[in-house]
Amino acid sequence: MKSILLGTAALALTASMALAASHGAVVRMGTEGAYPPYNFINDKGEVDGFERELGDELCKRAELTCEWVTNEWDSIIPNLVAGNYDVIIAGMSITAERDAVIDFTQNYTQPDPSAYLVAPGNEGLDVSKAVIAAQAATIQASFVASNGATLVEFATPEETISAVRNGEADAVLADKAYLDPIDAESEDLVMLERTELIGGGVGMGLRESDGELKAKFDAAIQSMKDDGTLNALIAKWEIGEAF
């Protein structure tokens, strides 16, 4: 009896190890590549940014080989679920809605306040009655929709900014970390004092059936939080508050 139990245990162990070996071979990291400083395509045509550095470090700590792929924001969750890549690391805030479909690791940024950019002279804008641009399927878009303001959605963050520039929208609502560099560079846009605290911080998204990989990344994120390297990265890329 004992030997049977041991035998099955050994079998189960080797089976799960074989599975882990074949699975752990390459982890495909899906990102958007259009949301600096979180992620963007650099001049060499490679994925770069806060999440590139973070992801590479996490993979090193979790002893995984990682590969970067880009995917449209619109279809980033369906393609994860269909198995085209294994992880979403694309500045995606943890929300209950998304959590129903996929799983999240613990957050690797503090909840980042969202800010508004408007045209100069329009600082007195009442954001609850204005036309607000936001990227489709983001926490900002659902916030604007529930807020009573008129929402205009765009597929890319870039287009939301253009919408304010060409007058299609009164303001754009997006993560402050994304808007800060744009605000600093452009004279034709100003940031409102008002910010909205929405979302529960940014985490990595994984398939619900992929608990093992999630545990590995959770542990790696925790170790980066503990030794302060995560805070250093957040400061380097100016992603909101430190932990």
Binding site: L19, S22, A25, V81, E208, S209
Partner: peptide
């Protein structure tokens, strides 16, 4: 499995560890 479409790693097309 719920929303997830999970086939065994050997059946993935292309294989998960294939280059980009």
């Amino acid at each position: 499995q719920g929303n997830d479409f999970v086939v065994c790693p050997e059946a993935k097309l292309p294989l998960g560890n294939a280059p980009q």
